[in-house]
Design a protein around this nucleic acid. Structure first.
Lengths: 123, 123
DNA sequence: GTAGTTGTACGAATTGAGTCGAACTTACCA
DNA sequence: TGGTAAGTTCGACTCAATTCGTACAACTAC
């Protein structure tokens, strides 16, 4: 058994970004999977806010300020990552997320704009 | 209680198209709902084939030739209609479906192209 | 060391979706 | 009038997803 650091930061040269957590390769991202994951308002919100935030800085789980248990958030971030929508990197204790903009735009042009233009339900 | 004809063909002048079955108004179509409904491969297939078929002719449920029980197909077409993705009209016994192209393009530009470019999973 | 922070893992309860059979309604036609 | 075809409705089953509490692991700072 590896520690988190051993598992995710193997072979890392000084100055490089921490390795990405397990995620599908760009060519394996499936539209139906992405749609299913984005059907959840909370996850749609996460992706939209990541897109609106500066692209230069990945965001931590807690940055969003959701009033939900941590285990619930872990669940949703994992779903987003395993669908190929976001990347997560381990920075010490924190796990920072970023939208896989280039991969999504290459594979599903127009999808990101749909998320950006989305407005949460008023009800 | 009304019969089908009474319910869906009320106030219909000769030569007019049969009335639409209950569906959300264009402004009430929700992205998260549409995404959730299109997350199902069978439904994605239905919409894609409707888009590829001639726009001049609505298609019946049976036209697709799916090897599934009729009750299953009813379920999926209803889901598509209630999400605002397709319109269904009653022609005698048959119920013909058509994609709400203008509404979808107005509300979610680019979405239809995503469906058109979709390729079913090889596995 | 120890406390506090960030996040995971596991398990349980609940909810919802998909699938299907069977019975039914409606329309059409011979 | 009797049969057939298109599609609905209902109920039941199964399976997956959501939510959350609790316990745990890793890192930081004191």
């Amino acid at each position: 058994m590896h520690t988190l650091a051993q598992t995710y930061m193997l072979g890392e040269a000084p100055g490089e970004l921490p390795g990405r957590l397990p995620e599908p390769a760009a060519e394996n991202i499936r539209l139906e999977r992405v749609m299913g994951v984005l059907a959840e308002p909370l996850r749609l919100t996460i992706v939209q806010r990541l897109l609106l935030a500066s692209e230069d800085f990945d965001q931590t789980c807690g940055w969003f300020g959701f009033d939900r248990p941590k285990s619930t958030l872990t669940h949703h971030f994992k779903a987003l990552r395993e669908a190929g929508i976001i990347t997560q990197r381990q920075y010490g204790l924190e796990r920072r997320s970023r939208v896989r903009l280039e991969d999504l735009n290459a594979r599903f042009p127009g999808l990101v704009d749909l998320v950006l233009n989305w407005t949460p339900d008023a009800t």
